[in-house]
Amino acid sequence: MALKKILKFKIINTFTIVISFIVSFFILDLGVNSFLRKGLKKYYGIEDNSEIALIGHSHIMLGLDKESMEKKLNIKVAKYTSEGVDILNRKVMIDYLLEKNDSIRLLIYGVDAWSFSGEGLSANSQVLFYPFLDNVNIDHYLRECVPFKDYLTRKIIKTTRYNEGLISSSFRGYLRNWDNMKSGTVNLKKVKEQIAKNKYRKINNNPLYIETLTQTIETLSLNKIEIILFYIPTLHLINQVENKKFKKNIDIFEQIESDYDNVKFINFTDAYSHRYELFYDPIHLNSVGQKVVTDSLIKILQKNYYNDIGI
């Protein structure tokens, strides 16, 4: 009997420790999630009533300097960019941004020759939306496109919604740091070797992506938002690997430009793709490249958008 009493007491004691541990864990989980999500929103500029929004993946992320644009144009710029987000993801990003911010008047949308190629970008870029799982639309989107077990885990334990990229972005949001920290220059020899070994991303157009881009433009047009399809330059060596397909996709963007009054296609490829010193790798600009390209874009914006959005 005595042994049973002791065991019972010990089990209750253990139970108390476990429960307090679990409760503490969920409180901490809630706090960390709240902190990280706030930082992310600051980094992306989701709730800061910006008038210009930059949307895209790493090309735009490393290619455009938001702070420089804000300073020189004297206007707020939201830079909602994430690595590997494809056209389908970007539609969700834009919908979310428009829901949170009704003052956007110009949206700069990153495009490239590989924009309509689903494969080779990221296998699971939708995970970048996990931090905003509490939003109804994003919840709906994720429930459909991620395995239920993953969805449920993120729903219950909020800190599982982050990865180090998102955590880093969150901290950069608090620190107000949007710098391009890529300082090296592309290794041309290595690029040539990779091309020779057939290790490059292929251009394969998926009709769904083209259709989704059109839908995105329609939505933005309904909201009376000006759109720039902006081609951040990619290295000449990579552009010419599938030259015909490359030109065909440039034609698609030019066609979209002519189809819509509020769409302009700006292509910096011819101007900068041969200037190797501006590239960190074949598809991303280094900090010098970012400055050059941003300054050029600012000049175009000052020249062409003064009347439309008051720059």
Binding site: S24, L28, D29, V32, T159, Y162, I167
Partner: peptide, 17 residues
């Protein structure tokens, strides 16, 4: 120890690959 394992658990949920 309680705090250490609590932080380890949050690190697992936040940083796991």
């Amino acid at each position: 120890q309680f705090l250490w394992y609590l932080l380890i658990c949050v690190a697992i949920s936040t940083l796991s690959v």
